[in-house]
């Protein structure tokens, strides 16, 4: 037939190294990275963790959304630095002054540590998000023995955010065409977004309802459903799970131990 797709064939790509790592390993990796960064107290270790997570992300794939999300988190971390540098309650030592305003060492240190931890988690989760798709997770969970209905409910929760964002993008585009608000600054964006939040939610719910009807019609809860063997081969999944879980247990144990010791 005659329709011509204007998109290039993206999904036919070859299997990459990160496709050999299963979703649960990736989730455990996020957990371990988070625990490590909270266990660490010196900035060199945080820098090491950030570098490690960042490299993983660089060697998997970087999309424009990742860059945007990173930019936004860096912006938040920067504001945190400024605020803590100025107003942290334990501030004593002036590190430097800008236009007569003093920035304090304690606050900056505190904010840097906190900011690094957040960044580690964001980078590690970013790695998970860009290297797995909702459908991969769904298949994996179903093969791990969950019923498809349960998987679907879990996945529709993951699905709702991109859906809302997609709808939001369309609304913003419509507002640009139908309106005069240029939506360049954050304030202009907020002003255009706030009044449409309720219609946005209604629209998204409406879509979920249509999808749910259609899935029932397509028989997704048919008792005869038999999941196909996934064609992706995960390497050493079992070993990774055990290893990463052990690291997590050790880290949590150690943290608890130091806490308890600290009490006495």
């Amino acid at each position: 037939m005659t329709d011509q797709s204007m998109l290039s064939d993206e999904s036919a790509g070859k299997s990459k190294w990160y496709n050999a790592v299963d979703p649960i390993t990736k989730l455990l990796f996020i957990l371990d990275m988070a625990l490590l960064s909270f266990a660490g107290t010196n900035l060199i270790m945080e820098a090491g963790l950030i570098t490690a997570a960042f490299l993983l992300l660089v060697f998997s794939k970087i999309s424009s959304t990742t860059v945007k999300a990173l930019g936004f988190s860096l912006f938040l971390i920067f504001t945190m630095l400024v605020i803590q540098g100025l107003f942290y309650s334990k501030n004593q030592t002036v590190l430097f002054s800008v236009l007569g305003i003093n920035f304090y060492k304690e606050g900056l240190m505190y904010a840097t540590t906190l900011g690094s931890r957040v960044l580690v988690i964001i980078l590690a989760s970013g790695f998970f998000m860009v290297t797995t798709t909702i459908s991969e997770n769904a298949k994996y969970l179903e093969q791990s023995g969950l019923s498809y209905k349960t998987v679907y409910v879990l996945m529709s929760v993951c699905y709702i955010l991109p859906e809302i964002m997609g709808n939001m993008r369309k609304i913003q585009q419509a507002q640009r065409v139908r309106g005069v608000n240029p939506q360049r600054t954050i304030l202009q964006k907020l002003k255009s977004v706030l009044p449409v939040l309720i219609p946005l939610v209604i629209k998204t719910l409406d879509q979920s309802m249509t999808r749910s009807i259609s899935l029932q019609l397509r028989g997704f809860d048919n008792p005869k459903r038999k999941a196909l063997k996934a064609d992706t081969h995960y390497r050493l999944a079992g070993m990774w799970h055990i290893g990463l879980t052990m690291i997590a247990v050790v880290l949590i144990g150690w943290k608890l131990w130091t806490k308890i010791n600290g009490l006495f």
Partner: peptide
């Protein structure tokens, strides 16, 4: 002024 092919891409009020 313009109307899109899909009205749902264009309507956003209550």
């Amino acid at each position: 002024g313009i109307t899109f092919q899909n009205p749902d891409d264009q309507l956003f009020n209550a």
